[in-house]
Write a protein that binds this DNA or RNA. Structure first.
Length: 899
DNA sequence: GCGGACTGCTTACCT
DNA sequence: ACAGGTAAGCAGTCCGCG
């Protein structure tokens, strides 16, 4: 195996600090705070040499926060006692009052003086004290992770690739002009925003040199090793890079059986764990990016703790000196129990924990359209790479050493490939998001989408010198103006049109392109513009938001509206077009696809965060108003359709299903929407036919090309037993071939046959048990279920009726199954999918692995089939109850006696 | 004391 | 730890009947 050239250099271990040279263009990747130096340190990536350079702040930037003038006396009092604070009165914009105010800037020598224990945050009502210091630094210096800079002397100067350096073709210019000439673009401010976004997002994203790492630890059955205890040996460490380096370091243990087969060529034996660790650390030092799967919570803290354990050196009992360890583990990182632990950083580079990244809902849903639903390496690899871990029976400690090597290397390889598949899609996406959110990839890959939007908006406040408001101040913006349909929700959401049951031919689906972002743009929605302080706006009937008590500002553009609006237009009118354009090189096209995806993720969440309490700029009226305008627009559009003689058979939030609209009608409606509501109504799909039953969010449609779309039907849901799902999908194939009303007759017969066959196979135990399992995810740890109902049950038992003391009642079926599992020694965690079958036993369920065919409650499965297929067949008018005209019996054959 | 109506809980899905 | 709206299955309670 080749050695990485960088590995040869031994000396660099202790001198990883390479200062950023002058006059080379580098990309900012992250900022960290060094407590030792009381300075921010920046990490830059050199895209040609693939090394990390460091730069420590030389601008004498200091931590600070603000307070308002009314607290002046108290602030001075504190500053008189604690001499470390320095006060300065400076002008700031108060967006909610729409005026300039004088604020007191409280400058401190270190971040802990602001937000630490006994810090000023505890003594005074302060603003902007909840921002991490390194974030503060980036906002103030306008440094954006993912962008390019060059050092000149002590200055870090923005050094973006110029338009002429990036290939620019005619289409790009055309689209560009179109955006800048649009109505909104005549507003100078708007033009400025669009241009800035595009200049930032068009920058190339380099391929970063990196390694993936995975460790295996000798463990007992049923007990996961934990870093805190670090009592088990590390037996294998796999490393895979994109420069050809591939290795698995193995601990030479005599107890490890060797069945005589050869070790894989990547394997390298180590006499002691200490040697194993030293070799690994050396490799980590020589790469700037490290990728792991759950490295924050397991691999890296384990490596660290183990390196400090004298057991790793059985002869001399020596440990590895701290300065040779590339990992920084926060002391309290595993003191806290539960989900949120600290990231594990590299001294010299960047660590990305893919487990945390893939757990992000926005990544899962919008970047990978829910292709994976479990957050395990195996499940994610299977969904995205179509490859899986090596399976084995029994305990990992009992594996022969060559099998262990293969297993470990395979895991490492999968981890690596999750960052490299589709031309490094994931990494590119993360860097594009870094540019928008102003967060480093290290930070953003570990937090939720609300923090991404927070970053974007906080940066903007600093840019325009506006004071970031408190959440309590934002609460004064008002109460909800609507009432939710679901109780326990705060306000009303999207409108769902009652579907017209039956089969409809030639259905056109129109939808509003990014409806909510469009509304935010067109109606100037932002926390400071909804219910703004101007009397003239409040009294202006044109500024009233329909069906609510809110009004919006017509004097100033809101920052959310500007940012979201400009991003929306850039995506819809520019990146989306470019990503489809065949005249551009594939590499360039991919960048536009990635940027378009990144913007989509931000846009999709931008409305939601406004209505989420955890969002620091949470403002209920903004979310409420957005949804209200959405309902108003779709309602008016439906009205308009009716006036034009178009039948609307269904609609949901931002879409309308039109039955056989005549030529030109769609265009007419679309023009009307643009002119009257300022939104883009586009033709999204054309169905050959659509089948509705009486249920909302539940339909089947066949596109002109025969593709079958299914939405919401039980047959599609992931928990439905496989045999039902398969039968269901077979019926879809039949329906995809239906062209005319007449074709339905034969289709119906075929479908009936299919279902009959399936039922027969079920009753004669022809399906393997795995096909019968319901697969349901558990979202909490098993103990947390059924607490409430148990308490109620105990109260009823007082009057002597029933005793539920050891009851498993009140506990959902999948949890009942999970508990049987844990009784058998297998651990069940939140996020696991439980596969269980319905049985005739007392509990009514059993984990598949523990069940036999004899115990299966066939009746329950026939019921499940019935509901699944009824959703389809009622609409096709073949309800199987109606066929037989009498209550269903246990044998499905009888059901179809009419044949 | 019985059984259907209703409620709450949980999950999966739609936009 | 972005929102609300809809469906379905299960467990348990409520409530009217007689």
């Amino acid at each position: 195996m080749d050695q990485s050239p960088l590995l040869q250099n031994d000396k660099q271990n202790l001198s990883y600090w390479k200062e950023l040279p002058e006059n080379i263009r580098v990309m900012l990747i992250s900022a960290i705070y060094s407590g030792e130096n009381q300075k921010v340190q920046l990490k830059f990536y050199d895209p040609t040499l693939h090394v990390i350079y460091f730069w420590q702040d030389k601008t004498d930037h200091k931590p600070y926060c603000y307070t308002k003038l009314e607290n002046k006396a108290r602030a001075e009092e504190i500053a008189a006692v604690e001499k470390k604070f320095q006060l300065k009165i400076i002008p700031k914009l108060d967006l909610m009052l729409d005026k300039e105010i004088q604020a007191i800037k409280i400058i401190a020598p270190d971040p802990l003086s602001i937000g630490g224990k006994g810090g000023i945050r505890e003594k005074l009502n302060v603003w902007e004290a909840n921002i991490k210091y390194h974030e503060n630094y980036l906002y103030d210096t306008r440094l954006i992770p993912g962008s390019y800079y060059t050092r000149k002397g002590d200055l870090i100067i923005a050094d973006p690739y110029k338009m002429s350096e990036i290939v620019h073709n005619a289409l790009k210019n055309f689209l560009w002009d179109k955006i800048l000439e649009s109505k909104e673009a005549r507003n100078d401010k708007y033009r400025e925003y669009v241009r800035e976004w595009a200049d930032l997002l068009n920058q190339p994203i380099p391929e970063m040199k990196r390694i993936a790492l995975d460790i295996e630890v000798d463990s007992e059955e049923g007990r996961m090793p934990v870093p805190r205890e670090h009592d088990r040996k590390i037996t294998a460490i796999g490393i895979v890079s994109n420069d050809g380096f591939r290795k698995v370091f193995l601990l030479d243990q005599n107890k490890n059986p060797n069945d005589g087969t050869q070790l894989i060529p990547e394997a390298e034996m180590c006499k002691t764990e200490k040697e194993l660790l030293e070799k690994t650390f050396k490799v980590i030092w020589s790469y700037s990016v490290l990728v792991t799967f759950n490295g924050d919570d397991f691999d890296l803290p384990y490596l660290y703790e183990r390196s400090q354990d004298p057991e790793i050196d059985p002869v001399n009992h020596s440990i590895i000196p701290k300065e040779e360890i590339p990992i920084v583990v926060k002391r309290d990182s595993f003191v806290k129990k539960g989900i949120q632990t600290e990231p594990v950083q590299l001294k010299h580079g960047v660590h990305i924990d893919l487990f945390r990244t893939f757990q992000n809902r926005s990544i899962q849903l919008y970047a990978f359209s829910h292709k994976y639903s479990e957050f395990r390496l195996n499940a994610i690899s299977e969904a995205l790479l179509n490859d899986t871990k090596i399976e084995f029976d029994g305990n990992i400690s009992d594996l022969p050493i060559q099998k262990l090597a293969q297993y470990c290397l395979k895991d490492t390889d999968l981890t690596f490939r999750l960052t490299s598949f589709n031309d490094n899609l994931l990494l590119k996406l993360l860097f594009a998001i870094a540019r928008i959110s102003r967060l480093s990839v290290e930070d953003l890959s570990r937090v939720g989408v609300n923090q991404w939007i927070r970053g974007m908006l906080f940066y903007e406040h600093r840019k325009i010198n506006a004071l970031i408001p408190h959440s309590e101040e934002l609460r004064f913006k008002g109460q909800a103006s609507s009432s939710a349909i679901i109780k326990e929700k705060k306000y009303r959401g999207g409108l769902v049109v009652e579907p017209t049951p039956g089969i409809h031919f030639n259905v056109s689906v129109l939808d509003f392109a990014s409806l909510y972002p469009s509304i935010i743009k067109v109606h100037n929605l932002s926390y400071e513009t909804v219910n703004c302080p101007h009397d003239s706006c409040r009294q202006d009937p044109n500024q009233k938001i329909p069906d609510t008590d809110y009004w919006t500002c017509n004097q100033k553009k809101g920052i959310t509206s500007l940012l979201i609006g400009s991003l929306r237009d850039l995506r819809v009118n520019y990146y989306k077009q470019l990503s489809k354009d065949k005249t551009i090189s594939p590499e360039e096209r991919q960048l536009y696809t990635v940027v378009s995806q990144a913007i989509k993720v931000i846009l999709n969440a931008s409305y939601g965060v406004m209505g989420a309490e955890i969002f620091p700029l949470y403002c209920l009226p903004v979310a409420d108003a957005t949804a209200a305008i959405g309902r108003n627009i779709i309602t008016k559009t439906i009205q308009k359709c009716k006036e034009s003689g178009i039948e609307v058979v269904y609609g949901d939030t931002d879409s309308l299903f039109l039955r056989n609209p005549s030529e030109g009608k769609v265009e007419e409606i679309s023009k009307w929407a643009k002119a009257n509501e300022g939104v883009d109504l586009e033709l999204d799909k054309e169905y050959r036919y659509v089948v509705f039953n009486n249920l909302k969010k539940n339909y089947l449609g066949v596109l002109k090309d025969g593709t079958v779309d299914v939405k919401g039907l039980t047959g599609k849901k992931s928990h439905t037993p496989n045999f039902i799902r398969k039968t269901f999908y077979s019926t879809l194939e039949i329906l995809g071939k239906v062209n005319t009303e007449k074709d339905f007759d034969t289709a119906r017969e075929k479908i009936k046959e299919l279902i009959k066959d399936s039922a027969k196979k079920l009753e004669t135990d022809k399906y393997p048990l795995e096909e019968l399992s319901f697969n349901v995810m558990i979202n909490k740890s098993p103990e947390k279920y059924g607490k409430k109902t148990n308490e109620t049950a105990r109260i009823t038992s007082i009057d002597g009726r029933d005793s539920y003391t050891n009851s498993i009642k009140g506990i959902p079926q999948h949890i009942k199954a999970a508990k049987q599992f844990s009784d058998n020694g297998r651990e069940i965690k939140a996020g696991d999918i439980i596969s269980y079958v319905k049985t005739k036993t007392a509990e009514g369920v059993k984990p598949v692995e523990l069940a036999t065919h004899k115990e299966i409650d066939t009746e329950k499965y026939l019921e499940a089939m019935e509901t699944t297929f009824d959703q389809l067949l009622t609409a096709l008018d073949v309800n199987f109850k109606s066929i037989i005209g009498k209550p269903r019996q246990s044998n499905l054959d009888e059901l179809f006696w009419s044949n």
